[in-house]
Computed example of a mutant assay.
Amino acid sequence: MEFTEVMETVGTAVDASGVAVMVVGAVIGSAGFLRRLAAREELTGSYRRYRQGLGRAILLGLEFLVAGDIIRTVAISPTYTSVGVLAVIVAVRTFLSFSLEVELEGRWPWQKRRRAQEPG
Rank of each mutant, 00 (worst) to 15 (best):
L62E: 07
I58G: 05
A31I: 03
I76T: 14
G25L: 11
A38E: 09
F64R: 02
T12S: 11
Y80P: 14
Q111P: 10
F64H: 09
L43W: 04
A26L: 05
S77I: 12
L104D: 05
Y80D: 11
R40D: 03
T9G: 06
V88P: 01
V92M: 11
I58R: 13
V85M: 08
R113E: 08
E103T: 14
F64V: 05
T9D: 00
L65R: 15
I89H: 09
V14C: 00
I58S: 00
S99H: 15
G68E: 10
F33K: 06
T44V: 01
V23K: 00
G68L: 00
M7L: 03
T44N: 13
L43H: 08
G106E: 03
S46N: 15
I58L: 14
V6G: 05
W108L: 06
G68M: 02
G32T: 09
A87M: 10
M7F: 01
R114Y: 07
T73M: 06
V74E: 03
R115C: 01
F98K: 08
F33E: 01
A91F: 01
F33W: 08
S82A: 10
V102E: 09
W108S: 09
F98C: 13
P119I: 07
E41S: 12
T12F: 03
D69T: 01
G55E: 03
T9A: 00
F98S: 02
T81C: 04
Q117T: 11
L37K: 09
E105H: 11
L59C: 03
W110S: 13
V74A: 15
I58K: 11
S46T: 14
W110K: 04
S17K: 07
I76G: 06
L34V: 15
E8Y: 06
Y50P: 05
G25C: 14
L43I: 07
A67H: 09
V23N: 00
R72H: 15
E101N: 13
E8C: 07
L60A: 15
V6A: 07
R113T: 08
E101I: 14
S46H: 10
R51A: 15
F3I: 04
I70L: 07
D15I: 14
S99D: 10
V27C: 12
R35G: 11
L60R: 11
T81Q: 14
P78M: 10
D69F: 00
R36D: 11
R113D: 05
L60P: 12
E105S: 12
Q117H: 13
G84Y: 03
L100I: 15
M1K: 04
S17T: 15
Q117A: 10
F3K: 03
R113N: 00
